[in-house]
Design a protein around this nucleic acid. Structure first.
Lengths: 224, 224, 224, 224
DNA sequence: TATGAATGAGAATTCATTCAT
DNA sequence: AATGAATGAATTCTCATTCAT
């Protein structure tokens, strides 16, 4: 195959205690390949064994590399878990309900938002379960979860405030508190459905959550 | 940090190595005293260190007894955690909204139910956080949590069905799905507020959750 | 054999980070026996392999106990080395030249002091070499060495001051600086002779060091 | 902390695995530049971290070259340490008291010799401390130290013998033993002062050591 | 010459559980 | 019932050295 030791970008050393350097991003394509193999392997192992029961050696074995190579790219299990989360970030994205227009159908908008949330959650169910697990154990990932949910809540809160300004939503509700409550509802429904594998189908989820959401905000249903 | 000596979790046979049976309840008063000391100590240690990071020897030290004594009453950490949960059960009880009468004010009823839920949760916040943690790790306690939440959901579902029959609640909603959604919302609000210590005051919680709950079911507000 | 679990003294727990306890002195005679076996084994292993090249497992193997038992009594290699040093303390004691009387023969006194120093050093040569080695590596033992040599220097300084007051010793010398210099000379002679195994016999050492010491202080030689 | 990957020290064969020979001096100027950068870096790292705690990668990082390049010039840590010592050799030179003339003032001569010794030691204190450290660990450098001190002792012994022949010094002392004792005194004073940073000023050191030295040899003080 | 990724043997440490007293 | 010492499997992490490019 081609050159593997070829540089892909310039080294940027970072100072650490004792004058060492933090694990640097790989400089060669070979390095990038190994790093990716490790991240992919880690996801497989974490999803299979759970975070606390997974061993670093399982990850390196799965990635077909030596234990030492792990430490070329990561300092410890937390760090590679963060990398796994990072790698899956894209796919876990989902549109919100932020910008509502007077001409939009708010019911349809909320429904679409909920559906895409559930779909993204379902696609990454194992990983979401893992995040719950790790967050319950490690404050660092509690913070990751907090940031992610805060972003989601924020977006929904803006949507709710928007609807209130358009005179479509119950003005008595504090948009942030309402968003927290309804977002918590949606995410917990997803968790119980996809991670714990209890509770109904996607359509049931979407219907119920959307109906409750709209009722809760007292959004007039266009038809039906 | 990592558990190294951890036995892979698996159902424990009831029959013990030397032909014994699962730990019997203590017969002497001295025995009962020691057992209670251990359970109390375990709660302290679990709440302080978290379940995975707590050591059996920390528990016995806190209980002022020897390591060996632990095994007189419990087989392992799971078992004493179950005992801790059992001991706190009473205090974690909370009334539901099950039986609604035509003459009752459903809004007030739901509000009271929510308030008492949040209050009970707040009283045992550390323990509830622990249960979340352990459930994310150990299937046995996933099941404990499932049973508890199922009971709560069941009760609320009956309440919702009841209101629907009285013609007070949105008949389009499936009572069980609606109960799952709204119960998930309430419990998750409680978790974020009392365990993670984010989000508002008790009154805000009660107001928002009750308002959403009633709006969601489309219960007419008589006054206010 | 007799009871081994018999208590020898009351437990005195010491609070540590995370609420644990520091390694406690053994409570039973069995425990005391094991601890002693470990300390003895450690001395053997350290003297054989040197401190940096010795492994904890070599120590437990030599002591015929499990790796785990090591941690019942010590936290790490430094701690057991300190225990080895402590155990040998008695035997490394040596009289000084502190209290000189007008009727004493100062030459004989200094000679006796030097001889007993060399003898004690010779008896524990391996251990003294070890202390030099560890002190060069670990600040904690640098401090141990400093304290021991400071004590020796102090004693000799008082002896010198004493002789000066009696009008027997060169009054121009600062007793502390002189003591440092002469004590350093003696201890380094011992090191080269007994640890590195170069340089002469005990008698040569005693003669030369005593003669230099007395000349240096300008102590009149009564005879010989 | 502990060295885990440490190869047990043993004499290295001159012939290398692939039929090569020990590292040749660099032929190109670029090579010479890299080699010098490594030696300089090594001194920095050794002085900063101590010999046992320094890593080869720290040295290459400090020298701004790759890990691989290290092995172009050196076989291992010992070898580069030897090179560091070699590079500093010049600066650590100091005149002795070898050739005394009947017309010389022996007191002044000894004083000058001592002063220049202390000054050289002080200039290279960190490195001298390092040599003590490495000598305590590695027989190869024990031998380096031995040779250096033997040379110093030899020179001083000749000086003492010289003075004895001139009838100026105590004839009872064996010149070699006396030199060992007095040289040990001087070098240990320097070590405690400059490496461990205890004990007085240069002038105090020079005064005390010279006075003791002269008293010890019973050299008549010309004046004062 | 220079590069930097890959290697893997080896040591420290933990703690649930057993068991002799 | 109580005690507390003993056990040892299991896992993480290190870093000198090699070698393909």
């Amino acid at each position: 195959m081609g050159k593997t030791n070829q540089r892909t970008r310039s080294a940027q050393p970072v100072v650490q205690p004792k004058g060492g350097v933090t694990r640097q991003p790989p400089v060669t394509t070979r390095g990038a390949r190994t790093r990716k193999a490790l991240v992919d392997a880690a996801r497989v192992v974490f999803e299979r064994d759970g975070y606390p029961d997974s061993r670093l050696t399982d990850i390196t074995a799965e990635a077909n590399c030596s234990t030492g190579s792990f430490y070329t790219y990561f300092d410890n299990k937390e760090e590679i878990f963060a990398a796994v989360l990072e790698a899956a970030k894209e796919d876990m994205m989902h549109p919100g309900m932020e910008h509502v227009d007077a001409t939009d159908d708010p019911y349809a908008l909320i429904e679409a938002s909920n559906r895409s949330y559930f779909e993204a959650y379902g696609r990454n169910a194992k990983l979401m379960g893992l995040l719950e697990q790790v967050a319950s154990i490690d404050p660092q990932f509690r913070e990751v979860r907090r940031r992610r949910s805060a972003e989601f809540i924020e977006r929904n809160a803006r949507g709710i405030a928007n609807l209130q300004q358009l005179g479509i939503a119950d003005a008595d509700l504090d948009p942030r508190m309402a968003s927290r409550a309804l977002s918590a509802m949606v995410s917990r429904l997803a968790f119980y459905t996809y991670v714990l594998d209890e509770w109904g189908s996607l359509d049931d989820l979407v219907f119920t959550s959307t109906r409750i959401w709209c009722n809760a905000l007292q959004i007039p249903r266009h038809k039906n």
